[in-house]
Design a protein around this nucleic acid. Sequence first.
DNA 1: CTGTCATTTCGTTATATGGCGAAATATAGA
DNA 2: TCTATATTTCGCCATATAACGAAATGACAG
Lengths: 118, 118
Amino acid sequence: MRVTKALADSQRVRILLLLEGGELCVCQIVAVLSLAPSTISKHLSILEDADLIVGRKEGRWAYFRLASGRPGAFTMPIRKWISQALDTDPVILQDRKKLKRVTSCAPAVLRQRQRKAS
Amino acid sequence: MRVTKALADSQRVRILLLLEGGELCVCQIVAVLSLAPSTISKHLSILEDADLIVGRKEGRWAYFRLASGRPGAFTMPIRKWISQALDTDPVILQDRKKLKRVTSCAPAVLRQRQRKAS
DNA sequence: CTGTCATTTCGTTATATGGCGAAATATAGA
DNA sequence: TCTATATTTCGCCATATAACGAAATGACAG
C-alpha cells in the first residue's frame, strides 16, 4: 500500500521521473516543480518511506536518488511501467527541459539566484 | 495517474486480487468485502475507468473481470507486481477463503441468503 | 560563539476521498 | 402492468491529503 499510495500523486511521479536522470539536490527539485520546499520535503519523505528513493546528506545539502534497482527488485517493474506510461506526457517533457537548465549550474549557484529572485 | 490512483486504495486492491480467480458478480464482491453495495459499485467504476477491469451486464446482474491481459499490455506488470507483493498478506488470504464460500453457490442463492440475514 | 542558509517539522486550511443510506434506474417475473 | 430486486447515482459526513508559511533543526562560515 505504501508504494501505490506514494505513486498516487502526480507531483511525486514527476519527482521520480526527474530522478531517472540521476541524483538531485532538494533545491533542484524545488526549482523544477515550483512548489514550496516544505511541500517537496514531504513528498520526498513519502517516496523514501515507500523505498522508491534514497536520501543522502552532504553538509546542509540533501540529495536523493532512485532506490538501487537490483533487476529483480520489487519496485523495478513499477518504475519501468511509469517511465513508459508517461514518457510522452507534456508535463514530464517540460520538467526534463527545465531540469536541464536547473542542472546547468551547481546547486549553490542555483540557490543564490533563487534568493535574488525573491 | 488514473491507474495509480485506482491502486492507492486497499479495498480496490482487494477487489483486483479477488478477480484473479475469475469473473465475479457485484453481489459476490459485496459479500466478501462486507461493504455497502453503493461503495463497492463506486470502487468498481474507478477500477474500470483505469482500464484495470471490465464489466458486463446480464439482466439485473453485473459481472466484472480483470481487463484482458495481452502479455504486453500496459497494466500487466502492475498486476503481476501487486499479486506478488500481497500474496502472503493476511487480509488477502482471508478474502480468498471467504470467496470460496461465497462462490460455492450461485449469485441468486447468495443474495437470497443475504436478504434473509438482514 | 553567532549568523546564514538548506532542509525538515509543525500547524493550519482547502480540497479530495471513502463510507453510508436513500432515491433513481433498469430488468425479470407475476 | 405492477412488484421485487440488483446495481448505480446522489447527497451527506468524517477523515485523509496536499499545499503553504512559520518555526525548528543542523551545518557551514566568519
